[in-house]
């Protein structure tokens, strides 16, 4: 394993130390060095947007902190939920007096730590409501959506929630919009090579040369099947076969497409996957309103991509179009 590392147990701290130096125009550190906030947060009179999760997914989660996006983030150890204290400190950093929307992904540890942080916030008189992203289709069958994990669809949930909050909406309105965003979103991943937590030092799962893992999770959680590596067009077909019927996405729908690399897959290949997805959607009469291709939500050096689709309505379009500025996502006036 070849890595640019000093002390493997300090990778998150050293990364964040640098992050606030590089992006000083956008973010700043807080009393808790694992909580990074939008430079102007808390924004008085605006609902605060908070997220958090294990590290190793750059630019998620910290990369979505910014203007009209996430106000504060809790950055846990690699692939490990931030503790309750950290979530609570992020809530405090984002609280502008109008309540806080905690928008995060469905993982056992995050659920427990968020629950304890919310109890603490309630004791302190801060109103907090949550939306738990569960966009990863292969992680649980239809009918058991509550068990599904949150993956790259979380970005669209933050974008929508962040825009809604910036428009001056109430906490309930922000929560409803973020909830709608994730309810209309479906994702799936395909992995080609594993990743290794620096402190562990070796990958904890393998994908053999010439094979691919269909439906892989953001931490290497096994997918639906391991099979021979296929051309991009066939993989795109697999994505669509799983994602489209699940919502379902149908002819006439307008969608956002987000193709994210998982870490070591070249962006060039991500465009090839997008190209194949676009052809299938066109064939099916599904119109692409907005597209994103790039390393939006990674898993250390895992090779692979995730494909995320969100079905739009007028409110979601307005939120997606709303101006924002963060390291991971910018939107200019359309």
């Amino acid at each position: 394993m070849q890595k640019f590392v000093n002390d493997p147990s300090k990778v998150v701290d050293e990364m964040l130390e640098a992050y606030v130096k590089v992006h000083a125009d956008l973010v700043s550190t807080t009393e808790n060095e694992r909580v990074i906030k939008y430079k102007h947060a808390p924004v008085k009179g605006k609902v605060g947007i908070v997220t958090g999760g294990g590290s190793g997914h750059k630019p998620a989660f910290v990369g979505y902190v910014g203007r009209n996006m996430v106000d504060a983030v809790a950055c846990g150890e690699i692939f490990s939920s931030p503790p309750a204290q950290m979530f609570y400190d992020a809530i405090k950093a984002a609280d502008g007096g109008k309540g806080v929307a905690l928008l995060y992904g469905n993982y056992a540890g995050d659920n427990m730590n968020v629950a304890m942080a919310m109890d603490e916030a309630e004791d302190e008189g801060i109103e907090v409501k949550k939306v738990v992203a569960n966009d990863d289709v292969p992680s649980a069958p239809k009918g058991e959506e509550a068990k599904r994990r949150g993956v790259a669809g979380e970005i669209l949930m933050w974008k929508v929630g962040g825009a809604k909050a910036a428009m001056g909406a109430s906490l309930d309105e922000v929560i409803a919009a973020a909830q709608k965003a994730i309810k209309n979103t479906r994702s799936m991943g395909v992995g080609l090579a594993p990743c290794a937590i620096p402190e562990v030092g070796h990958p904890n799962f393998t994908i053999e040369e010439g094979k691919m893992e269909v439906g892989i999770g953001h931490h290497g959680e096994p997918g639906i099947e391991v099979c021979d590596l296929e051309p991009s067009a066939k993989i795109a077909q697999r994505f669509c076969n799983v994602i489209l019927p699940d919502l379902p996405f149908e002819s006439g729908d307008e969608v956002v497409v987000l193709i994210s690399g998982l870490g070591s897959t070249p962006v060039m290949e991500q465009y090839i996957v997008f190209n194949d997805i676009e052809k299938i959607l066109k064939e099916r009469g599904i119109k692409i309103y907005l597209s994103y291709v790039g390393n939006y939500f990674t898993s250390l050096e895992m090779a692979g991509v995730t494909c995320t689709l969100m079905k739009l309505d007028e409110e979601l379009k307005e939120c997606m179009d709303y101006e924002c500025d963060s390291v991971g996502m910018q939107q200019f006036q359309r």
Partner: peptide
């Protein structure tokens, strides 16, 4: 464990 460790095992 509860406030500083995180993951699932911290809270549990």
């Amino acid at each position: 464990l509860m406030m500083k460790i995180g993951g699932s095992m911290g809270p549990l």
